[in-house]
Design a binder for these strands. Structure first.
Length: 242
DNA sequence: AAATTAGTCAACCGCTGTCAA
DNA sequence: CTTGACAGCGGTTGACTAATT
């Protein structure tokens, strides 16, 4: 982790994310979806770059991110995938449901690098490998579901659990997977208050006025027109059956 | 117990690809 | 075709922690 600091030129915060920041980001995305990473932080009440928000969401806050140690099966998938794909971490990560490219990359560098170099390509053929990946992926999916379920139970039952950590996970703290989304404060900046209370009230979105009513300003309309509709519509179709 | 070293991993940086104007 | 904005990727950093001296 890096020391929290402010970027003097932009005033944007850097370094580790606080619980409050996580909650703001999760709450915002939960309500309004992902429409533009560069502009979103302002409206979510975050003094972060869009890049930073995207990274935080993709790697740690997004639902169904799998935490904890890698299984033997996952190790094998990484080793074999790396022998085929090289350092294409995002491609490798797609073979490991719930794992991110960053996590896979870190795990490779800290645990598997020497093994990978020592055995750059074993005797598996490509087709054999693919069938193994398919088989393993199904297994990992099952394990992932178990972990998510178990995670929530363990948290509620914390005092009686001797083996689990007493520190809640990111998901537990922020509210992912247990239906707790605190919308938080819109911040003290005037336009943020305007956004939360007038420009984009939840009622507008709930009634399907996803774009025109939520973003009446012409500047917003120009830049958001195409990108906002898909994500928001998907989210609200799922949430409210619009 | 204190100091040093090694390992881990969250986060940043710079670059590339894509797409719309 | 060019340009600019944005998303995404991979390499790297550096704070923190555990292990070792």
């Amino acid at each position: 982790m890096r020391t929290p600091s402010s970027e003097k030129s932009t005033g944007l915060k850097k370094g580790s994310w606080s619980l409050e920041e996580d909650q703001k980001l999760v709450s915002y995305i939960k309500r309004y979806g992902i429409w533009n990473w560069s502009l979103m932080p302002k409206y979510a009440g975050l003094s972060r770059s869009g890049k930073s928000c995207r990274l935080r969401w993709m790697n740690y806050l997004k639902p169904n991110i799998k935490r904890g140690n890698f299984s033997k099966e996952e190790e094998e998938i990484i080793l074999h995938s790396h022998s085929v794909l090289g350092n294409r971490w995002s491609a490798i990560a797609t073979r490991l449901p719930g794992r991110t490219d960053n996590e896979v990359k870190n795990y490779w560098h800290t645990h598997l690098k020497k093994r990978g170099i020592a055995n750059p390509s074993d005797s598996n053929t490509s087709s054999t490998f693919e069938s193994n990946v398919t088989k393993n992926t199904q297994h990992v999916n099952y394990v992932t579901d178990n972990i998510v379920t178990q995670s929530s139970v363990t948290f509620e039952d914390d005092s009686s659990s001797s083996s689990s950590s007493t520190t809640p996970s990111i998901e537990q703290e922020v509210g992912i997977n247990n239906n707790y989304y605190d919308i938080g404060s819109p911040g003290t900046v005037e336009d943020l208050q305007l956004f939360w209370t007038q420009l984009c009230p939840i009622e507008n979105l709930e009634h399907g006025n996803i774009y025109q009513d939520a973003f009446p300003d012409s500047v917003f309309q120009d830049s958001f027109h195409d990108s906002i509709s898909h994500d928001l519509y998907s989210l609200y179709n799922h949430e409210f059956g619009i």
